[in-house]
Amino acid sequence: MTNDFPPRPGGIQQFVHNLAVRQPHGEVVVYASTWKGSEKFDAEQPFEVVRENTGMLLPTPSVARRAAELARAHECDTVMFGAAAPLGLLADGLRRRGGIRRAVALTHGHEVGWAALPGARGLLRRIGRGADVVTYLGEYTRVRLARVLDGVTTLERLAPGVDVDAYSPSVDGSVVRERHGLSSVPVIVCVSRLVPRKGQDVLIRALQRVHRTVPDATLLIVSGGPDRKRLERLVLETGLQRHVVFTGSVSWAELPAHYAAGDVFAMPCRTRRRGLDVEGLGIVYLEASATGLPVVAGDSGGAPDAVREGETGYVVNGRDVHAVAERLTNLLTDPFLASRMGAAGRAWVESEWRWETQAARLRTLLAG
């Protein structure tokens, strides 16, 4: 049961979908909100997807009734909430009216914000009481969730994975480069939704400093989002129109080639709103590593868990333009260093971050 499911774009959506498609055949039915293109996408899935005609499922009585009806009709014994908050509030009702015996609730980044607010903290504790397991992404999120959920439910780690076949050093990024006129220039690529937390504005400002040493370096900003107009104004203010490319939203199938179009990956995320707007992990760093790129990550939340500092890339203060520029310049001017870090990142992802490993972990949590 989830609001975070393709074709709606985003890292959480990819997380939930990749876990679902790797569960045993015939054991999954998905109840989700709707999105443009849902009908075509759903027809291609190896399981049934039931969509509510709304852009956002909320724990309302009508949604609770529909979820219970589906659970009974499909003889479901377990529910997994794609995001614990807020739909995890429905767990107790699904036990009473839907025949559910076990509930697993995934957390990402926003539940950490809930854990920090007095009113929301009580709701998160209620979600925990209704769940047999609440998952966390890494040590950062575990510590903050434990302050609310220790003694209430079981906390278990479940992180996203990477499709190491789709994201690979063998992927050809030349078509993307040619499309945007980048064939002969060094490229810094950032794949992330355009929202202030992701730090694309810092990358634009850092590019000015990078140009002191690498004057033809170009920034490829991949994805869409509400912050695009502000970022475009910043590009004009800094005079970087010829050196910053916005691709807009990109399909899942095209994402690997957009990573491969870069020489360095960077997303200097920063925590905002006094800890309420925080990066849960940052799967984009791992996808970039799998593609063989060195990464420059911000220090928000659990983002450092997706980088081996000094080995697969660097973690910097996401607000420090100078530090971001310095790391990017180092990697763009030292091909041996960049190659070594990219190779180390690929090896790390292959050994510890495969989707198959995470999906097997989920099967264990669902089975209890």
Rank of each mutant, 00 (worst) to 15 (best):
T2W: 09
Q14T: 15
Q14S: 14
P24W: 01
P24F: 06
G26F: 05
G26L: 02
G26W: 01
V28F: 05
Y31D: 08
T34I: 14
G37H: 02
F41K: 12
Q45N: 10
F47Y: 15
F47I: 07
E48D: 15
V49S: 11
T54K: 08
M56E: 14
P61C: 00
P61S: 01
S62H: 07
R66D: 11
A67G: 02
A67L: 09
A73L: 06
G82D: 04
P86C: 04
A91L: 01
R96D: 08
R97Y: 13
G99I: 06
A105F: 05
A105H: 06
T107M: 07
H110T: 14
E111L: 06
P118G: 06
G119L: 15
G128L: 03
G128P: 00
D132Q: 04
V134M: 05
V134K: 00
T135E: 09
R142V: 07
V143S: 12
R144S: 09
L145K: 05
G161Q: 07
V162S: 03
Y167K: 00
G173T: 03
S174C: 00
V175Y: 08
E178S: 14
R179N: 00
G181D: 03
P186C: 05
S192D: 13
R193Y: 10
V202K: 12
L203T: 09
R205F: 04
R205D: 10
V210W: 06
A217Y: 03
G224W: 05
P226C: 08
D227E: 13
D227L: 08
D227M: 09
D227G: 11
R228D: 05
K229W: 13
L231W: 00
E232G: 07
L236M: 12
T238C: 08
Q241C: 12
V250P: 02
V250N: 06
S251Q: 10
L255Y: 13
Y259D: 01
Y259S: 02
A260K: 00
R270K: 13
R273L: 12
R273Y: 10
V278S: 01
E279P: 01
Y285S: 07
L286D: 02
A288S: 03
S289R: 14
G302I: 04
A303G: 13
P304W: 00
P304D: 04
A306N: 09
E309A: 09
E311I: 13
E311S: 14
V316S: 14
V316M: 13
V321L: 11
A325Q: 01
E326N: 14
R327N: 10
R327S: 07
L328N: 08
S339P: 07
A343H: 12
W348F: 14
W348Q: 09
W355N: 00
Q358S: 12
A360W: 13
L365E: 15
G368T: 01
